[in-house]
Design a protein around this nucleic acid. Sequence first.
DNA 1: CAGTGGTCTAGACCACTGG
DNA 2: CAGTGGTCTAGACCACTGC
Lengths: 268, 268
Amino acid sequence: MSIDKTSRSAAARSAAPAEATTPPLGRTPAFSPLYQQIKSLISQSLQAGEWKSGSAIPSETELAGRYKVSQGTVRKAIDELATENLLIRRQGKGTFVATHAEQQVQYRFLRLFPEQGDLDSQGPAQRQIVDCHKARASAQVARKLQLRTGDAVLQIQRVLSFADIPTILENIWLPAAPFKGLDIERLRAYPGPMYALFESEFGMRMVRAQEEIRAVLGDNEQCKLLQTGPYVPLLSVERVAYTYNDMPMELRHALYRTDRHHYRNELG
Amino acid sequence: MSIDKTSRSAAARSAAPAEATTPPLGRTPAFSPLYQQIKSLISQSLQAGEWKSGSAIPSETELAGRYKVSQGTVRKAIDELATENLLIRRQGKGTFVATHAEQQVQYRFLRLFPEQGDLDSQGPAQRQIVDCHKARASAQVARKLQLRTGDAVLQIQRVLSFADIPTILENIWLPAAPFKGLDIERLRAYPGPMYALFESEFGMRMVRAQEEIRAVLGDNEQCKLLQTGPYVPLLSVERVAYTYNDMPMELRHALYRTDRHHYRNELG
DNA sequence: CAGTGGTCTAGACCACTGG
DNA sequence: CAGTGGTCTAGACCACTGC
């Protein structure tokens, strides 16, 4: 993969008067700044696993040399990757591959906060894997994961408790192929967040997610697992998590009790 | 307000050997980069209303001259203000004061999307002001708005409908002082979003907000206003909107029907 | 065409980290 | 102390907008 410093604008260079290629019918081909190309190259290295989760990538100076651009251009590329949470900058130390296996951000995609006290006061979550089995993708699951109906998927059900109170009931669907070898024993044996397991054992990093939230009433089975009475309103949180290249890799349909917690969202 | 290019780092300049002021007990005073100071100055001009909502601020070159810094430093300041949605950059045209009164982002803080079709297909929202009266802040309202219990507030109730289906029931609390003169007639007369009214008629720009979301069952009155049957689960969305300087300016407790819509959230 | 924001460079210096 | 990211500058050129 090489960098093209000249054809960034697809308009024919006006310095080349011969065979003037008129731009075809006002269709302006995409202009791609250098730093965007660098950003792509770094993304590709991340995707290819050239650098491990949590480890440092080469310094800005070194990358500038490798790509034959100025340090400022590399900096701008890294800046964007850092604001997208793919990289983490640490002054004086280096730039690191973002990971879900960090103390600071135990649950990067979880927006549920306790009504009283802070995240620390309720202690760590208790994870209970209820089920994990192979299945075939329904039409809806296939659509969200960009698979075909009937494709092999893993289906996982678990309950998260805070301070011994069951609070989240999750149904998770994963494409079977990238997670070959995952079973209920490995899930139960792993001590950290599930996304950290995906990362360390399957090299699959979830970099962003989209959630759709609705208010629902839990059915009998759901209420039993959450140990609530009947007719309890629950937050239905349907999450699709994406790895690099906007590839959907996980569908997670969760039910949150919101009597002792709330979903918090910042609007910019 | 002047810019201090020298005392950004509070460590005594090592070039001044006389009367060496030992840094008091390892307390490192805050380092503030130049561009952050510029950012503050621009913020203050925004807050003071030096530039109107939706109008262009001076060009980067002009601001660089005014503040006696390089254009690159102004650029970095504006970049951050733009990512915080206080300013909007438009290549070739200028940099503009962000506003709620734009076609593109009719509802900047509303995350509700129709289950079928897109935002356009359901047409514009119908706004029905149910009530608007002066009241005294309860302890809870006062806390959220950083007022004292019993302070004067305006309380507004309204219903938003999409395609003639009542979908959102809102209870809004505003501090009375900054919104003196607002009444139900003016609310009903204004054709645009309420935040645009706050902006154009009271010079009050909401720049960010925080929401707490829970699942609840509507009571009889609420269900009547939303024209649902009883025992319908609803999204409770409690929003505090902030103007400049993290000053809370509005408390909005809304109930969303989520049978035809869902709350959408992007996690980075 | 002038004026705006957007990109890219090269170099200097600062702040932070760890050996 | 060397190495890293963070700030700041000055200048050149490009892309986009509107007159």
